[in-house]
Design a protein around this nucleic acid. Structure first.
Lengths: 97, 97
DNA sequence: TACCTACTTGGTTAATTTGCCAAATACCAA
DNA sequence: TTGGTATTTGGCAAATTAACCAAGTAGGTA
């Protein structure tokens, strides 16, 4: 792999890594019916708020979600409607087991 | 997240993790025009053959590729034609930067 | 101001992943 | 059987990731 090719797949893998965690996948699904604030996500997932905040940062850095502060709350929403079709593909692989 | 939900996203993340490495993504693309033996992959990627072998095992365990031995060679091919559409989705996110 | 709530960041530890080398295995040919 | 090629497996060190707690920051309210 030359340098340019390497860079292409590096970038692609960074995006995929940002999805590659059960909690982050759950959050993506949870956000699919509209934006949520951090405390709503924490309530659903049931881990420490700092852990959720870091997961959200990972996804934000990857461009998967975006956030907006209103009052005391930080609201997160997905940036990409195509994500769900991606999961359809993944599910079809899973079913082969 | 209750136990069943947890399990669902756990499984999904395992599949995604199997994709989440530049070398493995390259291999998936490289296999898209037909099966290849391990030494052909090694030649393209340029890392140790044991490293490639382990990457292939990760993808095989996830159901992303399958293998067949013929003579001295082990041939690998993808199991899922939908993978490339998945990458189209990912690229559309990447371009937002 | 002082205090409260919502969230982020820093720091530590444990677990997981990766890559290389060396050794083992599988198949083929002389 | 001896040896050679292709691949896998074991083992180890380095790098990365994840979870928690504690401390810090931002905005709202009394």
């Amino acid at each position: 792999m030359n340098n340019e090719i390497q860079k292409k797949y590096q970038k692609r893998s960074e995006l995929i890594k940002a999805l590659a965690h059960p909690t982050r996948l759950f959050i993506i699904d949870f956000l699919s019916d509209g934006e949520k604030c951090v405390c709503e996500i924490v309530e659903q997932v049931g881990v420490d708020i700092s852990t959720i905040s870091k997961h959200l940062l990972v996804m934000k850095n990857a461009g998967l979600v975006e956030s907006e502060k209103r009052g005391l709350n930080m609201f997160y929403k997905t940036t990409c409607p195509c994500i769900s079709s991606l999961f359809d593909c993944l599910e079809s692989i899973s079913k082969k087991d």
